[in-house]
Each structure stands twice: as structure tokens, then as C-alpha cells.
């Protein structure tokens, strides 16, 4: 197994194989991270694409500091999300349920999934910024606690505490929502 540092060095030399490998390894996770952050699957598709095109443009400026490459991608994705919310007030958005329908052929499954994602996306908005970030990175991007800690620049202990408070807060919010 080739180490990530050497893979990134090849990607910085614009080696198509290395760049494609980084793209394939991270694409789904970045997409999920953005969907959970904004709750809009159609917008998330465009934004996911843009994250990778931006990464491609600026990969030569990436500096290896022992952090996982994905944490750099999540930072680009995070900036996209911030931009999205900045512009959101100026334009109409596609409702979540409309956009989800396009993605699943099974109506029964779609109906269940819509409720879950909608609930989750709305519930996470009630959390603090740091709690939202932990939930997105831990459960949508499926990073380990150690990886989340590196991505957020916090200690492992601090992330475990945030994870605990975020799950507890989510539970309370969702209980109120369904009660």
C-alpha cells in the first residue's frame, strides 16, 4: 500500500492516475458531507463537482503536513457551504423532498429516506457549529475520531466530548420534532 504522501506528490505533478485515485476515494464522502450540511441534494451535486474542480486547480499549493488529504478537501467543501449560505438569501432553493425524488426508483424506500434526511438535515441546524461539523465529518464523511480531530484542529478528547454532546443534542431535537 503506497503511502498518502507519495500519492499526493504524484498528484501535484499532475499525474492523472494519482488524481483519479484521490477523486474516487473521496467523492462519495464529500457529497454526503455537503448534503448533510445543506439538506439539498441537487445543490450538493453541483457543489461536490466544484470542490473537486477547485482542488484540481489548487493542488500544487497543497502542503503536506501529515494531515489526511481528505481534511484539505473538507476545508474546500466547508468554504463552498459557507458561500452557499451567503448567496442563499438572494435566490430560491430547491426543496429537499423535490430533489431527493430524482435519486431513488423505489417509492417506498424514497419516502422513508426523504423523511430521514430531511429530519436529520433540519435537526443538525439546531446544533452549534462545532457539533454540526463533528456530525457531518463523523457520520456523513465517515471519518474516525482521530481524523475528525486532525481536520478540525482539535484534540481527540475534545472531539469525543463534542461527539457526545452532539448526539445527545440531536436526540433531544429529534424527540421534540416527532413528539
Amino acid at each position: 500500500m503506497q503511502d498518502e504522501e507519495s500519492l499526493i506528490r504524484r498528484a501535484q505533478q499532475r499525474d492523472p492516475m494519482a488524481l483519479t485515485q484521490l477523486y474516487e476515494e473521496n467523492f462519495d464522502k464529500i457529497y454526503r458531507y455537503i448534503v448533510l450540511k445543506i439538506g439539498d441534494r441537487t445543490e450538493a451535486e453541483d457543489m461536490t463537482q466544484q470542490v473537486f474542480l477547485n482542488a484540481l486547480k489548487s493542488i500544487s499549493s497543497y502542503r503536506w503536513k501529515g494531515m489526511p488529504f481528505s481534511s484539505w478537501l473538507y476545508r474546500i467543501a466547508h468554504n463552498q457551504v459557507v458561500d452557499y449560505y451567503r448567496k442563499k438569501s438572494k435566490r430560491a432553493t430547491v426543496p429537499l423532498d423535490e430533489s431527493i425524488k430524482a435519486g431513488d426508483d423505489d417509492p417506498q424506500r424514497t419516502a422513508e429516506r426523504v423523511v430521514e434526511i430531511e429530519e436529520l438535515a433540519l435537526a443538525t441546524k439546531k446544533l452549534t457549529g462545532a457539533q454540526q461539523e463533528v456530525i457531518s465529518l463523523r457520520f456523513a464523511a465517515e471519518l474516525s475520531v482521530a481524523e475528525v480531530a486532525k481536520a478540525m484542529g482539535k484534540s481527540v478528547g475534545a472531539v469525543k466530548a463534542l461527539q457526545h454532546s452532539a448526539i445527545a443534542a440531536l436526540r433531544r431535537v429529534m424527540a421534540v420534532g416527532t413528539g
Partner: peptide, 19 residues
């Protein structure tokens, strides 16, 4: 238990596949 159930529900809901 309730925290683990909530975490698992969250993870499952977030595990959507791109079209």
C-alpha cells in the same frame, strides 16, 4: 443505549449514494 441508537440512525440516514 439511546445515544448509540441515535448515532446509528444518523449514520444510516446520512449514508446516501450519489445518483
Amino acid at each position: 443505549e439511546p445515544l448509540l441508537r441515535t448515532a446509528l440512525d444518523t449514520r444510516e440516514a446520512a449514508a446516501i449514494e450519489p445518483r
